[in-house]
Amino acid sequence: MAREYLLDAVDMEPPEPLVRAMELAEKLGKGDYLRMRHRREPCLLYDNLKQQGFSFITCTGSDVAYDVFIWHEGDAGAQSSVLTRADTLVIKLSSVKPSYP
């Protein structure tokens, strides 16, 4: 069963959102993903995620400026859950080819 972990970084000062996101991402199990809500695009996070073997998509269109979904690279179950979860949102940036289930 895929689990969504939520990180609300809306009120956080840089670089706390990045630090907390990386800490939580490292704890993700198989099929799990992290959803980070942020008021601005966390550009600095992307290279960190790529280097540590995570996939991500950044979406707009919810009640917050940016939703970033993060999961372990190659975790097909987590990827499928994320793409279903983000179905109603607008994908702004993705580290994976968006192939909807």
Binding site: R40, E41, L44, Y46, D47, Q51
Partner: peptide
């Protein structure tokens, strides 16, 4: 406001 694309290498 949007930040420009950012890379650690930059």
């Amino acid at each position: 406001m949007k930040a420009a694309a950012l890379s650690l290498a930059q």
